[in-house]
């Protein structure tokens, strides 16, 4: 068990670093204008939105309502801490009282 754990730690570290470095090497080789560059520029937003969609899809009506509250606060304040606080408070209250 002891050595198994160290194999996991070192193996996952090597694999993860290889993935991170490969992304860098791939990015350096893609053209810096045209469709590839536009796609790469749009990638952050699309990836984060995919993650949010997945997280909300996995949840239920309470998560959807709390997500709506967070979105409203984000639209009104554009503040990261306030949006996080509102979202956490909303889900906590919804789960406690509904």
């Amino acid at each position: 068990m002891m050595t198994e754990t160290w194999i996991l730690i070192l193996g996952l570290a090597a694999a993860t670093f290889a993935v991170r470095l490969s992304g860098y090497l791939l990015g350096q080789r893609l053209p810096d204008h045209g469709p590839w560059a536009r796609g790469l520029q749009a990638l952050p937003g699309c990836l984060i939105l995919s993650l949010v969609t997945y997280l909300l899809m996995r949840g239920g009506p309470q998560e959807w309502a709390a997500g709506t509250v967070a979105l409203a606060v984000a639209l009104a304040t554009r503040s990261l801490p306030l949006t996080m606080a509102a979202g956490i408070a909303a889900i906590y209250l919804l789960r406690a009282y509904f």
């Binding site: 937003g45 995919s50 949006t83 979202g87």
Partner: peptide
């Protein structure tokens, strides 16, 4: 457990910069 969902919603709000992103974002969803 909702902390990161809320955080990423706030970050998306900042990343939104106009209607050219509408179709790509709709496609992702």
């Amino acid at each position: 457990d909702f902390a990161f969902t809320a955080a990423f919603i706030a970050i998306l709000r900042s990343l939104w910069n106009g209607s050219t992103m509408l179709l790509p974002w709709a496609g992702s969803v």
